[in-house]
């Protein structure tokens, strides 16, 4: 159990070090500013590599969300998808900043780019998507990759502040995925009225309620990059979109 003086601890023990001692909530409860690693706390090479890889994933997600926002079927489509894209992009930007800051404080560098191993299949898929459903599938793959990766990372880093960082981000990526799964279920219902705003609550299919959390436990094995090469429909001649 964490010691009371640990940054971000939500509760403190009134009798430190005594098992089963009473707990109390601190007078002020700071948010887990997991990036505020002191200069003295240098990370291991593995931790810095994990942070750099995470920042690269976030950079890729930001790029995809920006590009997706400009696709014609998104620009001229329903508000639900654009709202989801905009909110998720802001989150990914924040995640990238957090991972970069933690990497720098751990003795590494900010990651400005993406990992080509993941970026290449994603860019290919993004160029080929022609429908909201195809875009949602690509975004789902990205969010799933991020959630699984950070869940794995959380178990592999020793620094408690980095555990907090990975641990706090992974559920949010999972939430993005849950929303996309619900939207996918709505689209699959085939009733455009339901995806419009406002929708008819009573008419929502049952699948919207349970499609958003398919697994009982979040997997911690990231998929291979090939999983991001989605089987989308081939481009028509010219490929112009």
């Amino acid at each position: 159990m964490g010691r009371p003086e640990q940054a971000g601890a939500r509760w403190v023990r009134e009798t430190a070090g005594r098992p089963g001692g009473r707990w109390r909530r601190p007078a002020t409860s700071p948010s887990p500013d997991v990036s505020s690693t002191s200069a003295a706390a240098r990370g291991t090479a593995h931790e810095i590599a994990a942070l750099s890889a995470a920042a690269a994933l976030e950079n890729l997600a930001v790029s995809v969300h920006r590009t997706a926002r400009s696709l014609p079927f998104v620009r001229h489509g329903g508000r639900a998808l654009t709202d989801v894209l905009d909110a998720a992009r802001r989150h990914h930007e924040e995640h990238a900043r957090r991972f970069d800051a933690a990497a720098v404080r751990a003795g590494g560098r900010a990651r400005r780019g993406t990992d080509p191993a993941y970026a290449r299949p994603v860019e290919r898929s993004l160029r080929a998507v022609r429908t909201p459903m195809e875009l949602i599938k690509l975004l789902l793959a990205l969010e799933d990759l991020a959630a699984r990766t950070y869940t794995k990372d959380m178990g592999e880093v020793d620094d408690p502040r980095l555990r907090r960082l990975f641990g706090s981000v992974a559920p949010v990526e999972a939430q993005h995925r849950a929303v996309l799964l619900a939207l996918e279920a709505l689209s699959a219902a085939g009733d455009d009225a339901l995806t419009a705003l406002p929708t008819d609550a009573a008419g929502l299919p049952a699948s919207v309620g349970d499609a958003g959390f398919p697994e009982t436990f979040c997997p911690s094995t990231p998929p291979a990059p090939a999983a991001l090469a989605l089987p989308v429909a081939p481009l028509s001649a010219g490929g112009a979109r």
Partner: peptide, 27 residues
């Protein structure tokens, strides 16, 4: 670590059903 994301997904879906922004926090 593997349960927290799933509970968070439950939260997002319920917020969606309640008409609230489903993912209000970046962390």
């Amino acid at each position: 670590a593997t349960v927290a994301p799933v509970e968070a997904m439950h939260v997002a879906v319920l917020r969606l059903l309640l008409g609230r922004p489903p993912v209000p926090d970046a962390l």
